[in-house]
Every structure is written in C-alpha cells, then in structure tokens.
Design a protein around this nucleic acid. Structure first.
Length: 649
RNA sequence: GCGCCCGUAGCUCAGCUGGAUAGAGCGUUUGCCUCCGGAGCAAAAGGCCAGAGGUUCGAAUCCUCUCGGGCGCACCA
C-alpha cells in the first residue's frame, strides 16, 4: 500500500517533468524530518534548480501546481527552501489497507543461496551461526517478495580439516572405525568430542611437525576413496553433518540440498571445468619461476591490469591435484547450469514439516529428486576474508565468457564474529598482554577457541526459562520450556541480525543474553501484547467486529485525524516496503531495525490507548483493527527474520 | 609493499542512491502499575560525525591526503 502510493506519486511527477520541462529523472523520495510535515518528501526541486536556473522554492511551487490532484493524496505543501511535502488522504489509505491484503506472484527464475558451509569435523560455533542466520534470513526476505530460492549447504567432506580429525582418531588415539562408530551414540556429543580432538591434533602437529605425514596419508586415502582412513572420514563427516543440521534446526534453519565435495571429485566436475578453462586459455601451464609446473590464472584476470605484476593464482598444483579455488569454479559453474554435468541425489532426511533435504551422491538414483542448480543468480554467503578467492572464481567465469553468470555471482560477505576480551575471561581463556589490549580476539577452531553454538543456545534457553518460570509459575514445565526456547532463539537471531554485514561482532555474553531494549524478545513482546488484547476480547465474550462494515472511509478519515493513531498505522503499513528496500540493499539488518521500530510504535500505542476500555464504539473498533493489523504485520516481519511469536511472555 | 574495510554520544551500533534541527539501545538521572501484565512507557543529560583540504545550493555520506585500528595478498580450505 505504502509502496504503491509512492510509485504513483513518482509516476505523476515524472510525467509532468517530461511534459513541461522535457526532463527525465529519477524522483527521489525520502521521509520528512518530522512526522508533522507529512508522509513523504520530494527534494526534486533542488535537483532541478541548476538546470532550470531558478530558485528551488519557485520550482517546487510550480511542480505542485502542475501535479494537480493525485488519488490518495490529500495535500502537497512546499516547505523549507524547496521541499515538497506530501500528505496522504488518511481515510482512503486506511480503507486501502483494510480492503486488500497485498499479494505477489512467484517469479520464474531461480536464485541459489549457498550458506552455512561448515567443515564437517567439529561442532558449529557462533561465527557459523552468523553465516547461517544471515543466509537463512536473506532467503526468507526474497521468498517473502515472491522470488524462487534454493538453499544449498556445501559440505567439504574430503578436506584437510576432516583429515585432521580422522588422523587424530587413528594415529593419536589408535581407534578403529568401529570404535569411532561406537562414539556416535556415546555420552559426549560427537561434534563436541571432535572439537576437542581437532584442537589436540593441531597442537600435536605443532609440537611434532613430522607427524604432519599423518595428514598427507589420510588425505591420500580419502582421495583414493578406499581403506580404513577413507571409511572413517566418511563416518566422521556424515555424523558431523547430522550434528550441524540439528544445531541449525534449533534456529529454524533448513536446507534444500547438500552438494558434497566427494561427489565433485568422483563425478569429475573438475575435469569438465578444466577442459573449458584450458580451451578458453583462461589458465596456462607455468614453465618457470616458483609456480613452475602449475596451471595458473594470471593476476590480471582478477586484479585489474594495473596490478599485472602481482602473483598469479595456482589452480592446479604441480602434482596434478586441483586447489580449492579450482573446485569452486567448477561448483559455481554447476550452480548456473554451465558445467554440462550434474550430481545424483538421494534423500538424506525430512524435517518434521515434511520438507526433504537431498544430498549429492555419485551413484545414479531412481527418479524423485527435483532439479537443483541452474540458477540465474547466485549468492554465496562467505565471510569477507575470502573476498580474494571469490574474486578469482568470478574471474574464472568471465575468462570462460560467462559474463552474465559472473555478473550474477554475488559474494554475500560479512565480517567475522570475534570474542570480546571480557568474553575470553568469562570462558577462562588466558590472554597475552598484547591480546588483552585488542578490541577483539579471533575465534580459532584449531586452538579450540570459541563459543560453541549449542552451548550458547542452551545458555540462552536457561536464562529465558528462569524469566518465564518467575512470570508464569502456573504453567507446566514443558510449555514453559517451549516458550523459553522461542524467546531464546528470537534473542539469538535478532542479536546476529541487528549488526550490518560489515560490522565485526565482538561477542559478549552480557549483550547476547540481554532480553531488553533493542532485542528479539522486545519485538516478540509487542506482538504478544497485541495478541493478548485480542484474546482478552474473546474472554469477555465478544467477537472481533466486522471491521470493513464499521470502518468506512469516512469513519477512518474521522478517526485517523488522531496523529498518534495515524503514525502507528502508517509505520505498520510499511512492512513490505521495508523488506523490499532491505533486499535491494542486501542488508537483513534493515528488516531487524524496522521490526524494532514497529515494536516501539506499538509499545507507545499500547501505553497511550486502552483499547478494550474505549467508550466510543467507532473509535474502539478502530483501535481493535489497528491492534489486529499491527499484530499481523509484526508477525509477518518476525517470520521474515525467522523469529516466532510465543504464546505468552 | 599492494588491496579491501572501519573510525559517529561514556559503551555497542544505525544513518537507504549527498538533503530540513545527526538517531537508537545499553549505562547514568528522574517520573509512571486503582493494569488490555513493567521483558514496558514518559523525560533529562550526553556529539567539532578521527583530523586537514576539496567538489556544490547543501557533505557523517563523494574525492585527495594525514593519523589510528582491522582483514586479506599459499602448490590451506
């Protein structure tokens, strides 16, 4: 509704400018500094002042005259040096909201979002959570706007990190595959056990460099695809993937398909990409220097001509094996349907709502899997430190002549989650004097330094449960736990989303565990209170009034003269516009910010108006409708953020 | 050395493609439960937007330089 009206007003001004001044320009719309100035403001006169050689104010006055009557607009005023402030016709705006819920079609082209991508060798930590929550929320945002999106979670089940844990089990702990298998259902969570083992193995390498031969042997076995070590690697990786899926599900994060590196190798995805790269001369065989014997991509391809003297990037090592970037180019080509090959898929599991998760496999399977990949746009949610490698992947596509795909390959980058020095102290981690002075300490899987995702969630639930129990001692424990869980997960998702992507989060328990102020629970609380008013109405034996029948356009115009009511309604009507803007700017934080502002508006409304005790019938109906509308918009916005509305708080 | 990002209230952060008097939350101070539950509301204090130049009607936002901080630049992923 809000957005449509904006578009109409833009169109009118554009048309008038064309007709009378022969000018084609974008009509910028902004929010007036003060709400009392109107609903939207147009600074267009300033833009034109120069070319028309007239004072902005004069131009603005003329434009207002030329614009004439616009449906849905009550008045336009020139203010300041030349702003055009537009006031909506409140009656018709309200009637529009009441009449037509917004509907959207579903787009035909597919977008792929790749996120999570955790090495399957240890428990997930908060840094992984930021990745998954950002990716998941961005998917929800796009789906909300009617776009078709496929969620991929890439599994590097054949890499160094898995190999190190396998080497730890086999060489350090002298365990057989059967013995490792027995640990899967043991007392300690398997991903936690591997977390410790990974840190221990890394430490052992450091102290005994000769033991790095274990890694080489393990990697070799994994690549060959048979033997005890390869078998153990599969066991470990598959088990950890299941742990990760369970961890993410706690935050309501699901996937469509898990493409695995083992299949990229076995199905020879790289061979196809390699042929194309050689044919197009995107890479060449280096014959001298330190990269002699490697296939490399010249730096000019991904750095620009100015830095042509920079190092080129090795794609195939002198021993014939392909690097990570090479595999990633092949994988990226597959996502766009440009590789000429596909995985086979088998059903890995179904979520309780029936949604299937597929996993790649090397053997042909009976039909049943949907068509994956073949996207027209791809978002890779990867932290900003890998920008350089993502640039190389895009350069690869460009060098192959796939410029369209290159252009639609988006590195959805974000900054890391680090630990605040205080947080390290809380965790009992000793810091060097130098580190203690730093603004934040980087998480390190190799050192076992970090906050595990499941631990954090447990702690949040525990904290929330204490609150719930003290506020609602009458309810049973299971219900209390369910509510506490929704609050805790809401708090966590909001915490990870409130920062814009390129802000480093210095993690701090005190802030993450807060349920007051700009937090998820604050927003949830607003929705719960709105719902509570509506259920109180039922408790009193009343049904929801027939809003449309009572709230005619005239009645709305009458009632919405109240500035406070109008502002709340206006804010609530902007949910769709807020999501649209956030998708355009690629910033989930904007949706979080909007949700918070909306909750603030309602909290204020709630304090000011006693909805159920309102004596005037028409006004009471309006307040009830606003409460209902607000609740609906808030729930919708929270759903986009992946946050539930608890039954009570 | 080269490249990218950042520097806004005591602290943590917003500030959409330049636009009206720079905004939140936390913390501090002060009010508000005869209630649709206070995980809340109302209000106060708190700013040379790191610094210096420039571009223009107009700069926290764009350009240049300086200072301070972070991250990249493997035959690791």
């Amino acid at each position: 509704m809000f957005h449509n009206l904006e578009k109409q007003i833009q169109a009118v001004f554009q048309a008038r400018l064309r007709e009378h001044f022969d000018i084609t320009t974008e009509i910028v719309i902004e929010q007036p500094k003060q709400a009392s100035f109107g609903e939207i403001a147009l600074p267009v006169a300033f833009q034109l002042a120069r070319s028309l050689k007239q004072a902005p104010r004069k131009i603005a006055e003329e434009l207002v005259k030329l614009a004439g009557e616009i449906p849905g607009v009550a008045a336009m005023e020139v203010a300041g040096n030349g702003y055009i402030n537009v006031r909506f016709d409140r009656g018709s705006y309200g009637a529009g909201l009441l009449a037509a819920p917004e509907t959207r079609g579903v787009s035909g082209t597919k977008t792929v979002v790749e996120h999570t991508n955790i090495n399957p060798n240890k428990a997930a930590h908060i840094g992984h959570l930021r990745n998954a929550v950002l990716g998941d929320t961005f998917v929800r945002m796009m789906r909300f706007l009617g776009q078709r999106v496929e969620i991929q979670n890439y599994i590097d089940n054949t890499g160094v990190q898995v190999a190190d844990v396998v080497a730890g089990f086999h060489f350090l702990e002298k365990k057989t595959t059967a013995e490792v298998a027995a640990l899967l259902n043991g007392e300690q969570k398997f991903d936690y056990l591997c977390w410790d083992l990974y840190a221990r193995t890394s430490q052992y390498y450091k102290e005994h460099p000769e033991s790095l031969a274990w890694r080489a042997e393990t990697l070799h076995s994994i690549e060959a695809g048979h033997g005890e070590l390869a078998e153990m690697a599969h066991l470990v990786a598959d088990a950890i993937v299941n742990c990760h899926l369970a961890t993410m599900l706690r935050l309501n994060i699901q996937y469509d398909v898990l493409p695995r590196e083992s299949e990229i190798l076995h199905l020879q995805f790289w061979a196809s990409a390699f042929e194309q790269l050689k044919e197009r001369k995107a890479i060449y065989l280096e014959t001298e220097g330190k990269n002699k014997g490697c296939w490399v991509m010249p730096s000019s391809a991904f750095r620009g001509e100015d830095d042509a003297n920079e190092d080129s990037k090795v794609i195939v090592r002198s021993n014939g094996t392909v690097t990570y970037v090479g595999k990633d180019i092949a994988y990226q080509m597959w996502k766009f349907g440009l590789l000429g090959k596909d995985f086979h898929y088998k059903l890995l599991t179904r979520y309780t709502d029936g949604h299937p998760v597929w996993v790649s496999t090397a053997e042909p399977q009976p039909a049943g899997a949907p068509a994956f990949g073949g996207a027209s746009r791809v978002y890779n949610v990867i932290d900003v430190r890998q920008s350089y490698l993502q640039d190389v992947v895009v350069a690869g596509l460009n060098a192959l002549g796939y410029n369209q795909a290159a252009e639609n390959s988006i590195h959805f980058s974000y900054e890391m989650v680090a630990l605040s020095p205080r947080c390290c102290v809380d965790l009992g981690i000793e810091l060097s004097e130098e580190d203690a002075k730093r603004p934040y300490i980087e998480v390190s899987g190799r050192k076992g330094l970090g906050v595990k995702a499941d631990d954090l969630m447990d702690k949040l639930i525990e904290t929330a449960l204490a609150e719930v129990v003290s506020r609602h001692p009458e309810d049973n424990l299971a219900a209390q736990k369910a509510v506490a869980t929704e609050i805790a997960m809401g708090a966590l998702r909001y915490f990870l989303l409130k920062y814009t992507r390129n802000t480093v989060i210095a993690f701090d328990f005190q802030e993450a565990l807060s349920f007051e102020g700009e937090t998820g629970p604050y927003v949830q609380y607003a929705a719960v209170r709105a719902q509570r008013i509506l259920s109180k109405l039922e408790d009193r034996g009343e049904a929801l009034p027939d809003f449309a029948a009572i709230l005619t356009r005239d009645a709305l115009a009458r009632q919405l003269k109240d500035e406070d009511c109008w502002q709340v309604l206006l804010a609530a009507s902007k949910a769709e516009a807020a999501v649209e803007r956030a998708v355009a700017s690629g910033e989930p934080a904007h949706v979080a910010k909007y949700a918070f502002q909306l909750a603030q508006e309602f909290a204020s409304f709630y304090q000011k108006f006693k909805v159920l005790d309102e004596p005037d019938a028409e006004r009471r109906t309006l307040l009830l409708w606003m409460t209902h509308f607000f609740r609906q918009q808030l729930e919708k916005t929270l759903a986009v953020l992946g946050i539930a509305v608890p039954a009570y708080m």
